[in-house]
Amino acid sequence: MANQVHNHSIRRQGLARKGVIYGLLVILGILFALPFVWLVSTSLKVDSQLFVMPPIWIPDPIKWSNYREALNYIPFWLYLKNTLTIAIPSTFGMLLSSSLVAYGFSRVQWPGRDVVFILVLATMMLPYQVTMIPLFIVFRNLGWIGTFKPLIIPSFFGGPFYIFLLRQFYLTLPMELSDAAKIDGCSEFGIYYRIILPLSKPALSTVALFSIMAYWNDFLAPLIYLEDDAKYTLALGLQQFQRQFGMEWAMLMATSVVITLPIIVLFFLTQKTFVQGIALTGLKG
C-alpha cells in the first residue's frame, strides 16, 4: 500500500517535471524563434507594411523581389567570391597547421612541452586589440594592406583554440597506435599523416566548421585591412550597405537572410559530425 502511494507520487512528480520541462522548452523556443520569424517576415514586406501598428506578421503581398534587389544592391556574388577566397584557403591553412602543432603537443614527448603549451593557451587570452595596431603596420610594410593576404596568411600558423581542441582529441587516442607503427618503421610524420589524421576526421570537421564560420562572420579584420569595395566580404559589405542606405529595413533583412543562409545550410549538413566532434574533443572540461 505504502509502496503504491510512493510510486504514484513519483509518477506524478515525473509528470509534473515533464510538464515543466516541455513548458520551458516551448516558451524559450518561441522566444528564440521569434527574431527569425521577424527577420524573414520583414525581408518580404513592401515598405508600407513595415511601419504599421500592430505589426503584420505575414506580408501581403509577399515581395520576393526584395531578395533580387538585395542581391543587386550589394554586389552579392562578388562579395561571396571574396568571402570564399578568404575562408577556403584560411580554413585549409588552419586545419593543416593546427593539426600539426596539436600533434607536436600531444603525441610527441619532448622536454618543455607542457610549459610551451601553457604559452599557447595564454595567447588565447591575448586580446586582438593589442596586436592589431603593430600587425597593421607590419602588413603595411609588407605592402599587404588592401589585399587578402593579411586575412589568409596568418591562418597557416595555427590558431590556439583549434590547437587546444585537436590536442585534447589526440590525447584520447591510445598511444599504442603510435608504438605499433613505430615498430613497423613508420616516421613520426608518417604516423601523423597515415594514422592519426584519418582517425581525427570528426575533430577536424569540427575545427573546419568553426573556422569557416569564423572567417565567414569576421568583421573587424576585413574592416581594418580591406579598402576598395571590390574586395569586401559579405559581412563588411552588409555593414557598408547599412551605412550607405540607412534604415531600409526590408532590404537589410533580405540581405541578412542571404548572408546567413549559407551558414545555416552548412550547419544542417554537418550537424551530426559537429555535435559529435564537440563531444569528442575534450571540451567537456
Binding site: 527574431p35 521577424w38 520583414t42 562572420n217 559581412a235 552588409l238 533583412m253 541578412s256 548572408i259 546567413t260
Partner: peptide, 14 residues
C-alpha cells in the same frame, strides 16, 4: 552562428 553583422542589423530593427 549567425554573422554578427547580420544579427546586429536584425536587432537594430527589433
Amino acid at each position: 552562428i549567425i554573422p554578427a553583422v547580420a544579427s546586429a542589423m536584425l536587432w537594430l530593427w527589433i
